[in-house]
Amino acid sequence: MDLILRGGRVVDPSQGLDAVCDVGFVAGKVAGIAPRLDAVGAQLRDVSGLVVAPGLIDLHTHVYWGGTSLGIDAEDFCRGSGVTTAVDTGSAGPGNFAGFRKHVIEPSEVRILAYLHVSHAGIYGFSKTVMVGESEDIRLMDPEGAVQTAERNRDVIVGIKVRVGRHASGDQGIAPLTVALQVAEETGLPLMAHIDEPPPSYEDVVDRLRTGDVLTHAFRPFPNSPATIQGTVRPAVLAARRRGVLFDIGHGMGSFSFRTARAMLANGFQPDTISSDVHALCINGPAFDQVTTMSKFLCLGMDLPSVIRASTVNAAFALKRPELGSLRPGSVGDATVLAIEDGNFDYMDVVGEHLEGHHRIASRGVVIGGKWWHPV
């Protein structure tokens, strides 16, 4: 063994595992899980009293640092948040993806995958002083360029991104979604659709999505909430889940409310994936990071294995990367060490509601490619 994490509570929903075990790594992969592994010649780290999970996947981030005004530094973020795979969702489009790849993705020690924006320049006008929805101008839709860029970068591009809603697409409404769906069909890739305020409506968007497509900002507040005023789940949302549409949190600065989350969870509608939508305007609140977003769901009543599932194996399924999100021997050697702290913690959603929670998930270190990457 090269590295052994000794004596932690291993929670790996991909295997239905929740037990105190050692986890060993060899040559960049998970090599074994057992109550006690032979530590001869291995680097040994005692993680007793902590939780060992598969490497966390944040399915919605913006990490084109320096290339877009909303980008943050992926490595700084991931070190503090226990994330081993950051998925950038549309920061770059066909016109600037080459720079994103060369200057951010390739030098990064943490894994960065990407949904390619169908808009030529990605999300280019998003700051405290300038806010321009890139989907407002149909001239910026670049389906041919998107197909070509996706084909050239199959190793890191996992899907196509589009943003629709009053803020993102303005008077173009749902038209950019039509363009993006054509690109997704042509490339055989899944689509991730952003939704904000209407138009279009929540129903208009989810009715168009296909099996394996992702609706992000799925638990957003009114207007365009998936829950009715009576506290039920909208029929179109239930129909979309039945046909395999995936529902992602994408917390961000305007896309998650406790009221919506309570209604959805009360109806047994858990998110498929929990993600932060971290960017320059929400990294200092209200989203902060991945573990804070996960903590909110733990405090709302989801059990720890379900919260971890939505940040590991479920996200790997959405990405069509089965080698991620698992501690099964032979999987990529990524793991996240977490502390579950008890106390009184103040959480806030995007509309200003506060929740006093009694649990907090905190990162205590990560393993990337079989090596301890985040010193305690």
Rank of each mutant, 00 (worst) to 15 (best):
H167R: 09
V233I: 07
H62W: 07
G145M: 09
F345W: 02
D204M: 11
G173I: 05
H62Y: 14
G231A: 13
R101T: 13
G173L: 10
W65M: 11
A335S: 03
C21E: 01
Q270P: 08
P226I: 12
A114E: 04
D277P: 03
G125L: 11
S363C: 05
I112V: 11
S331D: 06
S295A: 11
I229D: 13
A193T: 13
L319W: 01
E136T: 15
E356F: 14
R6P: 03
A315G: 11
V164Y: 11
E185A: 15
A39R: 07
G170I: 08
I160M: 02
E144Q: 08
E323P: 12
R243G: 14
P226Q: 08
G8T: 02
V23K: 00
L298V: 12
S331T: 11
S255V: 08
L113F: 07
G268K: 03
G93M: 11
L44G: 09
G268F: 13
V87S: 02
S255A: 12
M192Q: 09
G212Y: 10
V47D: 06
N284R: 15
V47K: 01
T228I: 12
K296C: 07
R45M: 15
L265N: 07
L281A: 14
A86E: 00
D289N: 10
S135T: 12
A227Q: 07
R79E: 09
A335W: 01
R6C: 01
M264Q: 07
G90V: 03
G16Q: 01
S81V: 00
M264Y: 08
L191P: 10
V23C: 04
R321D: 10
C299F: 09
L324E: 09
V367Q: 02
T216H: 09
A287H: 00
L17I: 10
P375I: 12
R111T: 07
D277S: 10
T129C: 13
D171C: 07
F97M: 04
A266M: 09
T61L: 04
V179C: 03
A74D: 06
S14G: 10
G95D: 10
A168G: 06
V205R: 10
V132E: 12
R101W: 12
E134K: 05
C21L: 13
V179N: 05
S331E: 01
L116E: 05
E197M: 07
G165E: 10
C78V: 00
D12R: 03
I160L: 08
L177K: 02
V130Y: 08
P199H: 15
V206M: 09
I361T: 03
T232F: 09
L304H: 11
V337C: 05
A121V: 12
D277E: 06
K29H: 14
W65F: 15
G330L: 13
L3Y: 01
D207P: 05
D142E: 10
L37D: 07
D346F: 14
R9P: 04
G365I: 00
V206L: 15
K320G: 14
V51R: 02
A310N: 03
E203C: 13
P226F: 08
R9D: 10
D76L: 08
V291M: 03
E151M: 09
H279I: 13
A27S: 14
G66Y: 04
L304K: 03
A74F: 02
V26G: 06
E356P: 06
A42M: 06
R241V: 12
N267A: 14
T211N: 13
H60E: 01
G7Y: 00
I72C: 08
I160H: 05
